[in-house]
Design a protein around this nucleic acid. Structure first.
Lengths: 228, 228
DNA sequence: GACGGGCAGTGATTTCAATCACTGCTGATG
DNA sequence: CATCAGCAGTGATTGAAATCACTGCCCGTC
């Protein structure tokens, strides 16, 4: 069954008693998604919560002028948007979600997941913690963008991506996400050209390099130096 | 009793059954605080959660260079830092808290409040919602700082302060918080001089004015125009 | 193997905001 | 009521990053 597979993909559901797992499985709808697919847009009514079984989902907000800020990229095993849980009827999503790497997602109605959470506080606590981490991240990013300049924000973003998507190897930490300079800039509001210039600095100092589309950080500590 | 008073001050505790209220009252310590008092610093071990009975508490992060970013100002009836609840042992506060308007606060051990929350899911949901709102706010601020310039951020900050601290009167909405230009700038990372120049623009256009230390917004819609 | 699209690199210029260096005002305090 | 501290206002200058306008490269595909 598709949906039995789903429960196994999402590790934090593991501690659930079999009975609840069964129940959950019946509540979700699983489907494949392709790069570029839009799961929801900012201001749509928030009725559905998503689990990522596979692939990568970009959570972002954009301005009428076409500029975009990426709040997060969710990967297998993660849930989004937790922020919509337990919100009032008619609350809207506060960001958009689109697929950046094809995969599979499972969808559940907000109210259904809420009732499961109330039956199983351990899960509720897990989601609470997840949201607390997002809040910390968002506030840290804000601090960087507001207090340190663009280079500080770039360094912060690279460190963060190393944590979430880093793969340690003999050269350092490789970020397992295909990213252009423009993509990087959209994490903190810098233009492609600015990112290019800043990355050249980092490259010349031997801190970062790029090979076939993936960035590798050679000196994580030097990056942290830029942050404070 | 001090602590019976405390429970009445915090409106979201109201739906609690008397028995739990009683229990809570025994767990909290209430004390008066004066302007400038520091309740905790970033990186202190997070063991205590606070309720504001009275007064205003500033939640902020600062840089080694002495610059500061204000994440929020909490007022009577609010709780902080929710983000620390259910965190692992030894987790530290991610921001500092200091008193900007004297008043009274009640303190409770993190673990004690957690156990109450688990016994009373309605409260847990309330806190969850509060945190979701903070996350939205933080992400919106980030969007503003990164995508719209400083004027956009200033406008956003004024709108936000109107919502949280606004008092509607014949002239418009007066923000019931004593704020200097420097204070305003610290919400989004601008210097005093920049805020002065931008505020002059807004003043000349009749959008905002300041009388004995309090800002009044005359045209909220014009401000929103700066945001998008 | 030629073509075209998407991304990176780079110089020149402009724009926005920080910084520096003052003056002026106001309200609290001895 | 004189003094002083803290905040606001303002011009000049500097600096960081955006914008504009290109060139060059790599890679997929026709």
């Amino acid at each position: 069954m598709e949906n039995v597979q789903f429960v196994d993909n999402i590790s934090f559901l593991e501690p659930l008693p079999d009975e609840l797992k069964e129940k959950l499985s019946k509540m979700v709808l699983t489907k494949n998604v392709a790069k570029g697919d839009v799961l929801f847009q900012e201001n749509d009514i928030a009725e559905t919560i998503f689990f990522v079984n596979n692939g990568k989902i970009k959570i972002s907000k954009s301005s009428p002028g076409g500029k975009e800020i990426v709040l997060d990229i969710r990967k297998a095993g993660e849930i989004f948007p937790e922020v919509a849980l337990f919100s009032k009827e008619e609350t809207t999503y506060s960001a958009s979600a689109s697929v950046v790497e094809f995969g599979s997602i499972s969808m559940i109605r907000k109210a259904d997941l809420e009732s499961i959470l109330l039956q199983y506080p351990e899960l509720f606590i897990f989601i609470f913690r997840t949201m607390a981490e997002r809040l910390r991240l968002s506030q840290n990013t804000l601090q960087n963008v507001a207090l340190y300049g663009k280079i500080g924000s770039l360094a912060f973003t690279l460190v963060r991506l190393c944590q979430d998507y880093g793969e340690v190897n003999e050269h350092g930490i490789t970020i397992r996400l295909k990213l252009t300079h423009e993509d990087l800039g959209s994490f903190f509001g810098a233009t492609r050209e600015s990112v290019t210039r800043m990355m050249n600095q980092l490259k010349n100092r031997g801190i970062v390099s790029k090979e076939n589309g993936y960035f590798t950080v050679h000196e994580l500590d030097s990056l942290k130096f830029y942050i404070d």
